[in-house]
């Protein structure tokens, strides 16, 4: 997979394929930020990446703020949707999570608190189009 990556997709299986390809380059300490409106498919994309990595029980972290998955790999799956101010994120120990070099970290609604994010990160943007298609972009920010 080369960055920046852009593709318009029309089915779930195409999303799965992109997620599978993307999962191959992910390594511990990588940060993946996901942006896109409600219903764009951010959780679905993370779910499919994790299935490719060998973990099938991913569900939405909206309520919990962060879900932790420990299998052969360690994953922190965040959602900033419910957060009202950046102090709340700092207060739950976000910096400690970020500094865990053993884990791959996913953050949904990351753009809400962009100021807290390290410069080096993958940025996944999912856009819902009017014709039921979706545009998936992945940038490798440095």
């Amino acid at each position: 997979m080369e960055f920046p990556f852009r593709k318009i997709i029309f089915s779930e299986s195409e999303t799965e394929k992109i997620a599978a390809d993307f999962s191959k380059i992910l390594a511990p300490s990588d940060l993946v930020c996901l942006n896109g409106s409600l219903g764009a498919g951010k959780t679905f994309f993370v779910k499919k990446i994790c299935s490719s990595l060998g973990y099938d029980s991913v569900s939405s972290p909206t309520f919990a703020i962060v879900n932790e998955y420990n299998f052969q790999k360690k994953i922190y799956h965040f959602d900033f949707y419910r957060i009202k101010k950046n102090l709340e994120i700092i207060d739950i120990g976000f910096e400690d999570y970020l500094n865990d070099s053993d884990a791959i970290i996913f953050i949904e609604w990351a753009e809400l608190f962009e100021e807290l994010l390290p410069k080096k990160r993958f940025l996944v943007t999912i856009k819902l189009n009017d014709d039921n298609s979706r545009e998936i972009s992945i940038d490798n920010l440095k």
Partner: peptide, 18 residues
């Protein structure tokens, strides 16, 4: 069984927001 994606309460909250 359990949810494979969003929880029920989350769906209510997000649809209300929409």
């Amino acid at each position: 069984g359990s949810t494979i994606d969003d929880a029920a309460g989350e769906a209510f909250d997000k649809v209300a927001k929409m």
